[in-house]
Amino acid sequence: MIPVLFYVAAAIAVGAAILAMTRSNAAHALIFLIVSLLGIAVLFFLLGAPFAAALQVVVYAGAIMVLFVFVIMMLNLGGNSQEKEHDLLSFEYWLVPGVMAGILLGELVIAINQTTNPLVSDPVLPKAVALSLFGPYMLGVELASMLLLAGLVGAYHLGRDFLVRNRERSS
């Protein structure tokens, strides 16, 4: 049973990624990208990494994709708003991602109901990951925190509009 779940989730992840790369509308591509990330999260769960699966959903499909949604809505890439509302109402745009996400949800329910995970003999538990992360990889954690701080400062710097004002003053 579990191998079937794996291959279905893998097909959805790959198919949604292909669909995301070939859409012309950025908002539609983003929906397919989120479905692909959710499919990869199910793959992580089936591969015996439930903590990584939860992080994939919360951080990747949640936080990082929300940044994309903000920028796409801010730049108004999805056509003008009236057409966009019309798109939302016509079901051809959400039918395929909705069915894909529904299949993934069903898979997750089935996989959680299995008492044991037959796909991997000894799944790596979050405790082992934490012991490794804050043991031998302590330096990497510090470097990642500095990278996130640099990303925060860089995004704040780039997000201001002073560059445009400097250019107008010089021209």
């Binding site: 951080v59 790596v124 996130l148 780039l158 997000g159």
Partner: peptide
Amino acid sequence: PDGQVMFLFILSIAAAEVSVGLGLVL
């Protein structure tokens, strides 16, 4: 567990990359 540790690093790198990249988009 090393693979999952690397996944956490990839996650933080992706977060930093996307925030700076979208700032560049703006």
